[in-house]
Each structure stands twice: as structure tokens, then as C-alpha cells.
Design a binder for these strands. Structure first.
Lengths: 163, 163
DNA sequence: CTAAAATATATGATTTTTCATATTATTTGG
DNA sequence: CCAAATAATATGAAAAATCATATATTTTAG
């Protein structure tokens, strides 16, 4: 005899359903859900998510060009151009065209941008640690390597199709 | 002596960088990258991504209400309302208010919607299989369980904060 | 050396998305 | 039973994202 289940009670993963076991759903949902809390902190710091990503990327490599920033920030080029302009208006970054290649625009952290990112990166690290603590140790240990493998394999795969 | 590395050559994961080893980046990037090819097929089928997600969700549970669809399709409620209206205009779904609770709008697949999803789900399954083949077997086997654990843990966590 | 192709960024116009809030319906506490 | 609280959906206005394409620069082929 099966008990009555309320409509709103979410019984994820019911036996034979497609979505709850579908890799692309799991990836997107995990990304969304895992990011939610930290992204709320990002917004409290007065940044939008792609802006935080830009700052983080620049803290790794100052002077990255727009196209590369777009890749890492997972945003379209034309969108990233506008985001960078807005960030420049708020004195978070400055743009300088590359002397070796005038097409390229290199983006650098300002002092203010550096301060902001120096607060956020430690927060991100701490949040990541708390996420990994949620997982049983063995799963936590495999998740990142598996994602990296997947990304690397997809990149290889992409190269094959456009050689 | 280290060789000269071109600017555009993406040397992911350089020793001491933050972003390439950051879980939220890996999740978002893996989700994006893994989805890209299949989502291109979805668009060729004349659907936007959230529309495909709605159809997939309805093929699991016909008559799901807007709020629940929004959760699974990872879209905001007001956006999903509009998406459903557009899908109704294209005769992919129909809406019926719940007789037991007049606030709820239940969404059902039409014959046409059922046909579309019956083509796309097998494509999705095949694409998923090809993704998992890209991973070394042991990693492929751990990825989905790890993502599910993470999602489950995050859900538990969320409940604690709003009891 | 030069014309054509490729690359990097910017921009205008349109479409999406979001945010706040209105509307309608149900539940709950007194 | 009623008033207030809660819940589900809809909607208008504003912000953001996308698409196609323009502009500027560098590379490549001949």
C-alpha cells in the first residue's frame, strides 16, 4: 500500500522518469543550485555574475583580452564588450588596446577592482569548501576531476570537428 | 627553458590559477559545453532550450503546473508563464486550470507536443550516451551520482535555512 | 606589395528576461 | 464564518542579452 504524496512535495527521481536522471539536467541544475548562494553574495557586493567572473579571470591573468574573457565568463562577445564598458565606468577595470595587435583590447584591474576581487575570491573559496563538505568524501573527491575530464574531452572533440 | 606559448592557445589549468579549478566554474562550463551540441539540435527542431525542458518534463509528468515546470526548466516563473503561452499558441501544449485548486494552471502535451518530444528524448538519450563515452569509464560512472548527491545535499541544506 | 581572408571588437535593433507588483484563489487562525 | 496570510499565475515597465553586421586591424596568398 503506497502512501498519498502531496503535489508540491517533490519526489525527485521517481523510478522511470527521464529528466531526473538526465546528465544535462543534472549538470545545469547542479550548477544553478550550487551557485545560488554565492551568486547572491556577488550581487550584494554590487556585481552581476559575469562581472564577478571577469574580475576572477583578471585576478588570474591581468590583461586578458575581451574574447578570452567572454569564454571564461561564459558570455557572448558583444555582451562582454558592454559589460567591460560598464565596469570601466565604475572604475573596476581599464581597457587598453594591445600595442602589438591593435585589434585586441586588453582589460586590466584597477586598484578598486583588485580590492573587490581580493574580498570575493576568499569568499568563493570558502563557499566551495562548504559545498564539497556537503558531499560524502569520496564523491567530493571525484566530482571536480570528472568535470575537468568532461571539459577536456569536449574541447578535444570540438577540435576534431573544426580542424 | 620554457617554450613560448601563443596567446590564443588556451593552456587551461595553469598551476596556480583560481578559476580553472573552481567548482562553480567547472560546473557552469561543463554544463554549457556539454549542452552546446544538443541544444543546437533543439533549436533546429524549432524550440528554445526552456521549451524543450518543458516538453521533457511534461513527457515525464503530463499536467505539471507552471511553478514546478519553472523549477525543472530552470527558468523564472514569469518567464515560464510567457513561454507556456507561446507554446500554447504553437499548439505544443494546452493549459487547463486545476479543478481542485483554481490558482494552479496545469499544462498538458498536445498531440503535436507529444510527437516533438518523442523525437527529442531519444536524441537526448543518444547524446548523453556519447558524452559518457568521452569519459574514462570510472569517471563516467561517478559523475551522475556525484551530481545527484550534490543536488540532494543542497536541497536538504535549503530546507534547513527556511524551516 | 596588395587584395582577400581572417580576427577582434563595437554597435543598432530586436527579442528576452527580469523585477516588482497586480490579480485571483485557497488556507489558516481567531 | 471572516479577515489576514499564503500561494499560483499574470502583466507592465525596465534591463539585459542576442543577432546580424559594421569597423578596424592583422595575416595570408599570390
Amino acid at each position: 500500500m503506497s502512501r498519498q504524496v502531496s503535489e508540491t512535495e517533490n519526489d525527485h527521481g521517481a523510478a522511470d522518469e527521464f529528466v531526473p536522471d538526465y546528465l544535462l539536467y543534472l549538470l545545469a541544475a547542479a550548477s544553478e543550485s550550487a551557485s545560488a548562494q554565492f551568486h547572491a553574495q556577488v550581487r550584494k557586493a554590487g556585481l552581476r555574475v559575469p562581472e564577478w567572473r571577469v574580475l576572477a579571470c583578471l585576478s588570474d591573468r591581468d590583461g586578458t583580452m575581451i574574447t578570452q574573457l567572454a569564454r571564461v565568463a561564459l558570455a557572448e562577445q558583444s555582451r562582454l564588450t558592454r559589460i567591460i564598458i560598464q565596469m570601466e565606468d565604475r572604475d573596476l577595470v581599464i581597457r587598453r588596446s594591445d600595442p602589438k595587435d591593435g585589434r585586441r583590447v586588453r582589460v586590466f584591474l584597477t586598484e578598486k577592482g583588485r580590492e573587490v576581487v581580493s574580498v570575493l575570491v576568499p569568499m568563493a573559496r570558502q563557499h566551495e569548501a562548504s559545498l564539497l563538505e556537503l558531499l560524502r568524501t569520496n564523491e567530493g573527491a571525484t566530482l571536480k576531476p570528472a568535470l575537468k575530464s568532461l571539459l577536456a574531452a569536449l574541447e578535444e572533440n570540438g577540435k576534431k570537428e573544426f580542424p
